[in-house]
């Protein structure tokens, strides 16, 4: 075999400027502009050390999200549109079978009449039922806590859709073409929010979070729950937050404030 030595991918040139720029943003962002008002824009809550391309996701990290329901407006759908654009989820005008990775749910308390609105997507559980029930192990949790479907081994049995308490998963009901190169998806397999894993691996925030801070209410905060210095970890330590169906003991990585 005349195969040349497998060149380690670290040898590949990579724009160091871009990484350090992001690291810089991470260090400076999250500054309190005024008491109670935080600036969390691009890369705000990311750890300063971004992962190299050839480095596997680490279990020292647990990606999570904190959503402030008070800042989420019922009429705003920016996170959903951003997700659709980013992942190429344009439907076929058939709402019962079209996919929704993230959706807005409007809540009303029947006893008090209080109304709220919030986005719900895959909650990236620590103990995901979808992973437990998947016969082939296609549904899996990555080391950094992101729950994904390995579409190479998914046989389309839909048991995970039945098992998910959050109705977070969709089945691809029809033939697709021209998918996004970073978000492969195809007929006959199950899919759900990937937490924009392609963006995370590229040191960027999920599309919904970015859209929420750009044009929405700035209700979504993304970051590493395991890093005590991260903005999200500080906030969940400081303020009350809750998980949907916490009674099930699944420990989702998506938390809500003021719910």
């Amino acid at each position: 075999m005349n195969r040349k030595a497998d060149k380690p991918a670290t040898a590949m040139p990579f724009d160091p400027g871009r990484r350090s720029f992001l690291a810089g943003t991470a260090a400076t962002a999250g500054v309190a502009l005024a008491p109670g008002i935080f600036l969390y824009s691009v890369g705000a809550s990311r750890s300063a050390e971004a992962r190299a391309l050839d480095e596997a996701a680490s279990s020292e990290v647990r990606w999570g999200m904190l959503i402030d329901v008070n800042r989420c407006d019922s009429g705003c759908n920016d996170c959903v549109s951003a997700c659709v654009t980013e992942n190429g989820l344009q439907g076929h005008g058939r709402p019962a079978t079209d996919p929704q990775w993230i959706r807005k749910i409007d809540l009303r308390d029947p006893n008090t009449g209080r109304e709220q609105s919030l986005p719900v997507m895959c909650q990236h559980c620590d103990e995901p039922p979808c992973v437990d029930v998947c016969p082939t192990g296609a549904s899996f949790k990555r080391a950094d806590g992101i729950v994904l479907v390995n579409k190479h081994t998914c046989i389309g049995c839909r048991y995970c859709i039945s098992a998910c308490p959050y109705k977070a998963r969709s089945f691809v009901h029809e033939t697709l073409e021209d998918q996004k190169s970073y978000a492969p998806r195809g007929k006959g397999t199950v899919e759900s929010c990937t937490l924009c894993v392609h963006r995370i691996d590229d040191d960027r925030q999920p599309a919904c979070v970015e859209a929420c801070s750009d044009t929405g209410g700035g209700a979504m905060l993304f970051g590493d729950l395991n890093n005590p210095d991260s903005e999200i970890a500080r906030r969940v330590a400081q303020y009350a937050s809750q998980q949907i169906r916490a009674d099930l003991g699944l420990n989702p990585a998506v938390r809500y404030r003021n719910l």
């Binding site: 060149k7 991918a9 590949m12 992962r51 391309l53 050839d54 480095e55 596997a56 996701a57 899996f140 990555r142 080391a143 950094d144 994904l148 390995n150 190479h152 190169s181 970073y182 894993v197 995370i200 691996d201 590229d202």
Partner: peptide, 21 residues
Amino acid sequence: QRDDTMLQGIRTKQYSLKECV
């Protein structure tokens, strides 16, 4: 490459399908 990328998030370019395409 597919397993490395899917399961571990390793995104080296050399043997990536996207780069072939």
